[in-house]
Design a protein around this nucleic acid. Structure first.
Lengths: 130, 130
DNA sequence: CAAACATATCAAATTTTGTTTATATATTCC
DNA sequence: GGAATATATAAACAAAATTTGATATGTTTG
């Protein structure tokens, strides 16, 4: 019974519902969610922790990032999560998605920049002879 | 979104889930629930209030009693409530139901006693001529 | 009408959650 | 290896939920 009440406790907060809605279409890392919500990172980590403990989300570590995704691995959770996501209109998270999109674009930009720089450095090394 | 998080908040407490389970087979008045749970009355009223505000239960006043029953008047609530009740095993509330049964029996006994006494008094009045 | 009863509400005490700032840990980049 | 980045955790604090005891309100019974 405690598992059940815990599941609902995890769903009883607007920030957490918002995060679930953001995860609707796939996984995100913590910094993505922080950017999308415009909240400080420990706060977001706290809410992710609550949902992870309740079994609503799972995480996956990759390098220095930790990606979170919805865990609907049993019928009950699937049912609940589906009906929850369906009941939150996209308009509610429109602003968050806009910020997320911008953040992802910038992140991509930064990564490409690093790759180019690295490639240039490599080329330079070769040309000047190692 | 607040309505949604509120609904889950109402479901996020073991006492309240227990009450819902007790209401599974029909309405009960506050004193029945108090007896079944073995809790003090203001506490039970508080939890009933939370669930009523969230739209999970309805009340009906009859004399000095207020009867509460599950409100599954829309698909979403019906779905949630069904799956919740199904997930709480009867064993969890076995003790509560035992106490409830005893309380209801005693209540019936007291009422019958009152009715007999009243009938006797009435008969007596007639015989001695009003 | 007074006593008994059923319930709600209020205020105070307590417990649980959520927020923030600071810091620790681990990973990648240079 | 040192700087930068991503995340978690701890400690302190704020806010919200719960519990309890006291009391108010309305209803029935004698």
């Amino acid at each position: 019974m405690q598992t059940l009440s815990n599941l609902f406790k995890a769903l009883s907060d607007e920030t957490r519902l918002r995060i679930l809605k953001l995860l609707e279409h796939g996984e995100l890392c913590v910094c993505d969610i922080v950017a999308a919500l415009g909240m400080i990172q420990p706060k977001v980590s706290f809410h992710l922790g609550v949902m992870k403990d309740a079994g609503l989300i799972k995480d996956r570590k990759q390098g220095r990032w930790i990606h979170y995704r919805i865990d609907d691995s049993d019928m009950f959770k699937r049912l609940i999560l589906l009906s929850v996501l369906e009941r939150i209109p996209d308009t509610v998270v429109a602003e968050n998605r806009k910020r997320l999109k911008k953040f992802l674009t910038d992140k991509n930009g930064r990564q490409e920049m690093r790759q180019k720089t690295a490639a240039a450095a490599c080329l330079c090394e070769r040309q000047t002879g190692g």
